[in-house]
Simulated assay, not measured.
Amino acid sequence: MTSNLTIEELKTMIFQLPVEELMELISEIEERLDNVKMMQLAETGFQEWNDPEEDIYHD
C-alpha cells in the first residue's frame, strides 16, 4: 500500500484520535516494532546457512 501522505499529515490525523484509540495504536506499533527487532535478531543466527555452494540444489 502506498500513500501520498506526509509525516506531518499523518501526525495530524493520529493526534485527532480519541485517547483510547491512540493508546491502541501505540500498542500495535510497539508490537510491530518488537516483531521486527526479533526477526532481525533471528536473521543473524542463520547467517551460517547462507552457503552459496548449496544453491546447486535449487537447480
Results as ranks from 00 to 15, higher is better:
Ile14Ser: 04
Leu17Ser: 00
Asp55Val: 14
His58Pro: 02
Lys37Ala: 14
Ala42Leu: 13
Leu17Cys: 00
Val19Gly: 09
Glu54Tyr: 10
Ala42Asn: 11
Asn35Gln: 12
Arg32Gly: 01
Ser3Met: 03
Met23Gln: 14
Asp59Gly: 14
Ile29Asn: 01
Gly45Ala: 09
Glu8Arg: 10
Glu48Lys: 08
Glu9Lys: 10
Glu54Lys: 11
Gln47Trp: 01
Met23Tyr: 03
Glu20His: 08
Met13Asp: 11
Glu53Arg: 09
Thr12Arg: 14
Lys11Asn: 15
Glu48Arg: 07
His58Ser: 13
Leu22Arg: 10
His58Ala: 13
Phe46Asn: 04
Asp51Glu: 14
Pro52Phe: 01
Gly45Gln: 09
Leu41Asn: 08
Phe46Ala: 05
Leu33Lys: 11
Val19Phe: 08
Lys11Ile: 14
Thr6Leu: 03
Met1Gln: 06
Met13Ala: 15
Ile29Ala: 09
Met13Glu: 15
Lys11Thr: 15
Ser3Ile: 05
Glu53Phe: 11
Phe15Cys: 13
Leu22Gly: 00
Met23Arg: 10
Glu20Asp: 14
Asp34Gln: 06
Asp59Thr: 11
Lys11Ala: 15
Trp49Arg: 11
Ser3Tyr: 05
Ile56Cys: 08
Leu25His: 02
Leu5Val: 04
Glu54Asn: 09
Leu22Asp: 00
Phe15Ala: 09
Met13Phe: 05
Ser27Gly: 06
Thr44Ile: 04
Tyr57Gln: 10
Asp55Trp: 05
Asp34Glu: 11
Glu9Tyr: 03
Met1Glu: 08
Leu5Ile: 04
Ala42Pro: 00
Thr2Val: 07
